[in-house]
Each structure stands twice: as structure tokens, then as C-alpha cells.
């Protein structure tokens, strides 16, 4: 995709359960001495979808942050951003160093090209464990715990209405009023 270097912080052997606090603490420990200008984070993860890690990390690094951005323009130290606020567009000015979380519409990710894939094999991939970041398990212990994970009760098959359109529409309105009681 175009990155010059990758770092993998492997927590598998050291941590049983982590939460957003854990992730933010580990990233903080990594970034502490890196002197970065800009951190691009995701808006929400596809699994837990809590959207906490970006803002938590920015706070720990004492950096300003702007979430759900759809446009990013950097001119020297000045940064102009457009962010999505529940459908409205907010134009924000801020400065580097900065953390942003990316929302759909920011750009169109390219597909990896074949030469890109070949080149990627030669790029440095650093692997770290939390030990290498001078952290131990207790430093990053989760603040929350997951008590249960379950599938929602199987939804009963819906009622597909039959007959002519006029009849279906009449039946639907009647069902919404008497059975579902939402009208």
C-alpha cells in the first residue's frame, strides 16, 4: 500500500485480556520517544467499534486530536481539516503534532500493485513485545472486563405480505397499527 516501515507489537504471549486502555498505553509507550508529527488512526474498529483508542492515545501523548476527518491539508505546521459531524461538515484549523481519526470519504485506498508487493518484502518489519517497551502486564491491565459474549436471539422470520399491492399496503398499515403498534 505504500508504507516505508512497519512495526508489530505482539501482545499474544503476555496479555490475556486487554481493553482500549491497554492498547492506548502500549501505543503511548511506543510513540513516547518517536517525535512524530502526525498519527492517522482509524475511526472505529470493526469488531468492538468503541472508537476510544485514538483520542486516548492523543491524550496520553498530550497531542491535539480531531476525529472522523474527511479532508486533510497540511501547510507547514498549520493543518486544515474537514470533519464529519453527524452528516454536517465542520472546518477545523489546528497544528502539528496531531492525531486524527479517519472517516470514510477521506481518500480512496489504492490496491497494492505487484511491484509494490515485491518491494514490501524488503521493507523493515520490526517486531516488539511489551517487554521491549519497558512495560509489564500490570502497567497495561484492562480497566474493564467482558463478562459475556453472545449471539442475539434468532429473529423470527418476518411476515412477507401477499396479494395485490393495494391489499398488501392495507394489511401493512393495519399490522403496524394493531400488531406492531408503532403508528
Amino acid at each position: 500500500m505504500g508504507a516505508d516501515k512497519a512495526v508489530l507489537i505482539n501482545t499474544e504471549d503476555d496479555l490475556e485480556e486487554g481493553d482500549q486502555y491497554t492498547t492506548a498505553r502500549i501505543l503511548e509507550a511506543y510513540f513516547e520517544d518517536k517525535d512524530v508529527d502526525l498519527i492517522l488512526a482509524g475511526n472505529v474498529a470493526i469488531d468492538e467499534a468503541s472508537g476510544q483508542v485514538g483520542p486516548r492515545l492523543a491524550d496520553r501523548l498530550d497531542m491535539p486530536y480531531v476525529t472522523t476527518i474527511t479532508e486533510l491539508n497540511i501547510d507547514g505546521d498549520t493543518v486544515n481539516i474537514v470533519r464529519d459531524v453527524e452528516g454536517d461538515e465542520e472546518k477545523v484549523e489546528t497544528s502539528l503534532p496531531l492525531l486524527v481519526t479517519c472517516q470514510q470519504g477521506l481518500n480512496e485506498p489504492r490496491y497494492p500493485s505487484l511491484p509494490g508487493i515485491m518491494k514490501a518484502k524488503k521493507k523493515p518489519l520490526e517486531e516488539l513485545e511489551i517487554d521491549d517497551l519497558d512495560l509489564d502486564e500490570d502497567d497495561v491491565e484492562a480497566k474493564t472486563e467482558t463478562v459475556d459474549v453472545f449471539l442475539p436471539p434468532e429473529k423470527e422470520a418476518g411476515k412477507v405480505l401477499e396479494g395485490e399491492t393495494d391489499e398488501q399496503v392495507k394489511e401493512l398499515v393495519s399490522l403496524l397499527r394493531t400488531e406492531a403498534k408503532v403508528l
Binding site: I46, A49, A142, T144, V147, P152
Partner: peptide, 27 residues
């Protein structure tokens, strides 16, 4: 700690959808 985007409360346990609403967890 912070439990985001909850849809229900049962005592000190909080219900929230995960995996795009395909599953739920209590935290």
C-alpha cells in the same frame, strides 16, 4: 475504563452490540 455505545443496563453490567450488531457483549 469506559464502556462505549451501550444499549442496555443490567445492574453493573452493560450490554453493547459488537461485530456490527451480529453479536452482543456484556461488560
Amino acid at each position: 475504563g469506559l464502556i462505549s455505545d451501550i444499549t442496555g443496563i443490567e445492574g453493573d453490567q452493560f450490554l453493547r452490540p459488537i461485530y456490527s450488531g451480529k453479536a452482543f457483549e456484556k461488560k
